[in-house]
């Protein structure tokens, strides 16, 4: 079993040079995809947070754009070993989206248009570590990169940053997502090289 310790985060590496172990630097932005690219019109897009009691908090595209946004500049690390430094995004912090959500949950399962899922400890979505982003490099996020909006959780391997995100379900028990149920690590910390189960 892998060592999953949700409390082990918050290390500040923004200023640190270098790459996580086993990674190489790339300047382009490879497109990885486990299925056909969903094309979701903005006026049909919705984002839903569902609590463990079934309570739903929902935002339309317009409501989402009205929320205060941030412009995180972050390094991203794909489990297929490429890393890209200093990527610039715009989106809404999960702290904002979860601010009025009452929950006792410790776990989250993000789900996407097209059926993709990925799991994270709820703590890893809070305290300025995660966003729902709709712009990349000054432009609307292209469908190939997860537009209209994707999750951005840069301190974990990039498969956790679900493309085409449509919602987050809060859970009292951990539920493995798409890759986590097929051999990939449950937590996925690139600095501890948690690629596969058992790492």
């Amino acid at each position: 079993m892998g060592i999953v310790s949700p409390g082990f985060h918050g290390r500040r590496r923004e200023s640190a040079g270098g790459l996580p172990p086993g990674q190489y630097l790339t300047n382009d932005f490879p497109v990885l995809s486990a299925g056909p690219t969903p094309r979701i019109p903005q006026d049909e897009w919705e984002f839903t947070v569902t609590t463990e009691s079934g309570r739903e908090h929902r935002w339309t595209w317009r409501e989402f754009l009205d929320l205060p946004s941030e412009t995180p500049q972050v390094d991203i690390h794909c489990v297929t070993k490429w890393s890209k430094l200093g990527t610039e995004w715009q989106g809404v912090s999960l702290d904002v989206l979860l601010a009025d959500v009452e929950t006792e949950a410790d776990y989250a399962l993000a789900h996407s248009y097209g059926g993709y899922t990925t799991n994270l400890p709820l703590d890893d979505l809070l305290d300025g570590k995660a966003w729902v982003v709709h712009r990349y490099d000054g432009e609307d996020l292209e469908p190939e990169h997860g537009g209209p909006a994707r999750l951005l959780v840069p301190h974990l391997y990039f498969w956790k940053s679900a493309k085409w995100v449509r919602g987050i379900t809060l859970l009292t028990e951990n539920e493995p997502g798409f890759w986590e149920s097929a051999g990939y690590h449950d937590y996925g910390d690139p600095w501890r090289e948690q690629r596969y189960q058992g790492d």
Partner: peptide
């Protein structure tokens, strides 16, 4: 088959359902 991904994902040509997934780790 979607193979530009952390694993190989094979989908049904009729309905896009995931029929088979194959992940190759260093030792399994």
């Amino acid at each position: 088959v979607y193979d530009r991904a952390p694993g190989m994902v094979a989908r049904c040509a009729g309905c896009d359902n995931v029929v088979l997934r194959l992940v190759r780790t260093p030792d399994a």
